[in-house]
Design a binder for these strands. Structure first.
Lengths: 146, 146
DNA sequence: CGGTATCCCCCATGATACTG
DNA sequence: CAGTATCATGGGGGATACCG
C-alpha cells in the first residue's frame, strides 16, 4: 500500500499548543494516525485476519488453522501479516514448546477494539458496494458511447 | 494498493444457494466487498479527500481549493483520486463552462454515508495509534537486547 | 484553471523452495 | 508445523513538463 517514503497525513493529532499550523489545517504532520492505520488494515490480508481471529474469539487459532480459514493466502503472507499485527500489539502469540512447535494467535484487547469500527466498515461495504458497482458501470457506459 | 491481479476476498456475499463452498468458508469469491472497499479508501489520499469534502459540506469544493486543503498532494494524484471517487459514485463533479473552467466537487449521498464508518475509524486511530506505537517500541526493544 | 503525459522508483504480493 | 529465503512483477505514487 501507500508504503512510507515521503508519507503524508490528515487528521493529525491535536498536540502542539501553537495554533500556528493547526490553524491552516495542520495536515503536514507526517504521522497522521488515520493514514497510518489505513496503511496497516489496508494491506491485503490484514482485515481478513482480524475478522477470522475475531470470529474465533475467545479461542486462540493456530497458524495452519488460520491459513485454512484464509483461503488463498500463502505461508509467507500469513506469516508477514501476523508479524505485523503482533508488532502493532493487535495480536498475541503463544508458542507451545513442543516439537514440532504449535503457535497460537489471538486478538489482544486492542485488536478486539479495532474490530468494532472494522465491522462497521464491513457492514457498509456489504450494503453499498453494489451501488458502487452500478455507478462504475454507468460511468463506463457514459464514457463508451462511441 | 492490493491491486487486483489474482485478488482474494473475505466476507463474501451470502448469495449462492448451494452450501457447498459456503460451507467451507466461501472465501474464494474474488469480489469480497470489504477488500474492495479497503482497496479504495486505503489508497494514500482517498480517505483524506473524503474527509475534506465532508468537512466542506454542504459546500462544493474546487480542484485548486482541494489541493490547498490536502497539503503535499500533486495535481496528478488529486486528479486520480477524484476520478476514482467519481467513478465509484462517491463524489459528484460539476463543471462551470467558463474559460478557464471551474470544476466543483462534492460528496454524493453515498459518499456522505461512507463518511460515517470512516469517521469512526479515524476516531479509533486517533485514540489508539499511540498504543500501537508503544507496542512497536516494546517489540523493538525486546528484539534488540543484544 | 484543471488537468494529462512521461519517466522512474519502490514495496506489497505471489510462487517456489528450503529449514529448525 | 511454522516458518524464512529468494526471485519476479505490477501498480501506487512522486517529480516534472506540457496542454485546451
Amino acid at each position: 500500500m501507500t508504503s512510507s517514503p515521503s508519507g503524508t497525513p490528515h487528521g493529525a493529532p491535536r498536540a502542539a499548543s501553537g495554533p500556528s499550523r493547526a490553524a491552516r489545517g495542520d495536515l503536514f504532520d507526517p504521522a497522521c494516525p488515520t493514514r497510518r492505520l489505513l496503511d496497516r488494515i489496508g494491506t491485503k490480508w490484514t482485515s481478513m485476519a482480524v475478522k477470522v481471529l475475531a470470529e474465533a474469539e475467545p479461542e486462540e487459532v493456530r497458524f495452519a488453522e488460520l491459513q485454512r480459514r484464509m483461503p488463498g493466502i500463502s505461508q509467507k503472507m500469513l506469516s508477514a501479516t501476523l508479524q505485523a499485527l503482533h508488532r502493532d500489539g493487535l495480536v498475541s502469540r503463544r508458542v507451545e514448546p513442543t516439537v514440532p512447535p504449535r503457535v497460537h494467535y489471538r486478538l489482544t484487547p486492542l485488536g478486539l477494539s479495532l474490530e468494532v469500527p472494522l465491522a462497521l466498515l464491513r457492514t457498509w461495504a456489504e450494503e453499498h458496494m453494489p451501488e458502487i458497482d452500478r455507478a462504475q458501470r454507468r460511468e463506463e457506459a457514459a464514457r463508451t458511447p462511441e
